Amino acid sequence: MATSPPAVIAVVGPTGSGKSDLAVALALELGGEVINADAMQFYRGMDIGTAKVTAEERRGVPHHLLDTLDVTEEASVSDFQRKARAAIAEIHGRGKRAILAGGSGLYVRAALDVLEFPGTDPAIRRRLEAELDDAGLAPLRTRLEAVDPLSAARVGDARRVVRALEVFELTGRPFSSFMPVREYFQPAVQIGLEVDRELLKDRLAHRVHRMVADGLQAEVQRLDAAGLRNGKTAARALGYSQFLKVLDGEWDVGQATEDTIVATRKFARRQLTWFRADPRITWLDWQDPELVAKAAAICR
């Protein structure tokens, strides 16, 4: 009789909470390998500003889906889903434990949950965009209300109305039917890192200052030469968008540093809100001396 695969492990929480360290420690404890689920760590060369785990910090644990994109390429959740699930199957096939680590909530859910991504059709998209240009948003919104009232109530901007109509024409299903549900694609366990918010605020500020001292501006300059500004995803990354303004002479280093700190703290709050909404996550104190042992016990 075929045995079911082991549960996928996911280590989640806000940026700066220690997810990478815990994932590596669990991999060493349980015989596992780590799969990156941080969208900005897909990018080659974006090392300092994303706090990408160094070879030394990986402690010999294999890491997957790091450095898979050039900064000019756009990150895709559906592409990540395919690659992450292939990596999970390959790791489990070798008798190891697959451990997702990252704070990009939708990417984690794409790997773990029953979540479909409808395709695209450039011809349909062009026709709908032409209709938008000719007649405005109102007729498209009226059509969407007729075929998919749930999406019509949720989406506001023209781009998303066009996308919802494109999906309906392409699949015959309302776009709202593709919304995720909290149902695991295969057995999974999620460990969330519970943080002290004031301590995290201080840690994030210290981390940004350390990134600047370690050469963030020079890293952004190198990536700018490689086409960073042309990347829809990479150019918006925390720290990178701010230091592009330094290169342009709009801001000084101090202003870019402070703006990065503020933006990183806001991002951490959004991550906490996202993960807090998932009742399946088991939360553990990020500073508990027994953190690794407790997390390993849950995963076993």
Rank of each mutant, 00 (worst) to 15 (best):
T282E: 14
T72C: 03
Q217C: 04
A51F: 02
A158L: 08
G192D: 14
H92C: 10
M1P: 06
I281C: 06
D157A: 15
V108W: 08
Q271S: 13
T171F: 13
R127C: 04
R236S: 15
R270P: 01
R59E: 14
A75K: 04
V71A: 07
G102P: 03
Q186F: 07
T233D: 12
A235K: 14
V262C: 10
L216M: 15
D121H: 08
T120Y: 08
G45R: 14
L247C: 10
E74Y: 04
F275C: 01
G227V: 07
T282H: 15
K201Q: 04
P174G: 02
A152C: 01
T15R: 03
D202G: 13
R85P: 02
R126L: 11
H92T: 09
P180D: 07
L244I: 08
T3A: 12
G136I: 12
A237Y: 01
N230C: 14
V147S: 00
S20W: 07
E258G: 04
G18R: 03
V71S: 02
L100Q: 10
G60R: 06
H209S: 05
V34P: 04
L223M: 08
R173W: 08
E169H: 04
A235S: 13
F185C: 01
L228H: 14
F185H: 03
T260N: 15
A10D: 08
A55D: 15
P139Q: 05
G105N: 00
E29C: 01
A138M: 14
K52Y: 02
R173L: 11
W286P: 11
P5R: 06
G49A: 10
A84L: 03
A55Q: 15
R97H: 06
T257S: 05
A293P: 06
R82G: 00
Y107R: 04
G215F: 11
P174E: 03
R154T: 08
L112G: 00
D278H: 13
W283G: 00
A27D: 08
R197G: 12
A7I: 02
P122S: 14
S104F: 04
W283F: 00
R82Q: 08
G95P: 09
S176L: 09
R97Y: 06
L128W: 02
C299E: 04
D252Y: 05
A295I: 01
K201H: 11
M179D: 15
R265G: 02
V208R: 02
G60I: 10
K245S: 10
A87K: 01
Y240E: 14
R44D: 15
T120I: 07
A110Y: 01
